[in-house]
Amino acid sequence: MRRAVCPGSFDPVTNGHLDIVQRAASLFDEVVVAVGVNKSKNRLFEAEERIAMLEEACAEWSNVRVDGFTGLLTTYCVENGVHAIVKGLRAVSDFDYELQMAQMNSSLTDVETVFVPTSPAWSFLASSLVKEVATFGGDVSGLVPPFVLERLTARLAERRATGG
């Protein structure tokens, strides 16, 4: 079985993420969307919330499952029989960083990295930009699934109400 992982923080999941997951699902027998869990990082959504949103967003693909991980991605890959890491590339700057990571990962274990160019419609998209635009009242409805938009809007309202 050809198993791949699409890792990320997914804070929140965007249509760009889902484009890469869908395309990976057409290339591999099984795709694990692996949510990085790092308690020391300040995220808008807790790991459990990000996992739940991804499970809902990926429900249409029968060969995609969602999991969380801590520590090194390569350790997760070895422990879960994952043969490839799928990374979306938006720009040359992504390639510079991801190539270094791919080379480091291959020096640690026998896992290949597969680069998938982002669809032009999503080449500008990043979770951090979605959060920033939404924080200032911009319309991000075309950038995330509708249920993610609802949760994002509610979370930002909560933060404004508590001064956080």
Rank of each mutant, 00 (worst) to 15 (best):
R2F: 07
A4F: 13
V5H: 13
C6V: 15
G8R: 12
S9I: 10
F10W: 00
F10A: 06
D11R: 13
P12V: 02
P12D: 03
N15W: 00
G16D: 02
H17Y: 09
H17P: 10
L18S: 11
D19E: 04
I20D: 03
I20R: 01
V21L: 02
Q22C: 11
F28D: 03
E30G: 12
V31C: 09
V32E: 01
V32Q: 01
V35M: 04
K39L: 09
S40F: 13
K41M: 05
N42P: 14
L44F: 12
L44A: 05
F45K: 04
E46A: 14
E48H: 11
E49A: 13
I51R: 13
A52N: 03
M53T: 07
L54Q: 07
E55W: 13
E55G: 01
A57K: 07
A57S: 15
A59M: 05
N63L: 06
N63W: 12
D67I: 04
L72T: 07
L73S: 04
L73C: 06
T74G: 05
T75M: 01
V78Y: 03
E79R: 11
V82I: 15
H83W: 09
H83P: 00
A84F: 14
I85V: 15
I85E: 00
V86S: 10
V92R: 06
D94T: 12
D96P: 09
Y97D: 10
L99W: 08
L99T: 15
N105D: 05
N105T: 11
S106L: 06
S107V: 03
T109Q: 08
T118Y: 10
S119Y: 12
P120E: 07
A121G: 10
A121L: 13
S123F: 14
F124A: 01
L125N: 07
A126K: 08
L129E: 00
L129H: 05
V130P: 00
K131Y: 13
T135M: 01
G137D: 02
G138L: 02
G138T: 08
D139T: 05
V140R: 06
L143E: 02
L143R: 04
V144S: 06
L149N: 14
L149K: 14
E150H: 09
T153E: 09
A154F: 07
R155F: 00
A157L: 04
G163S: 04
G163A: 03
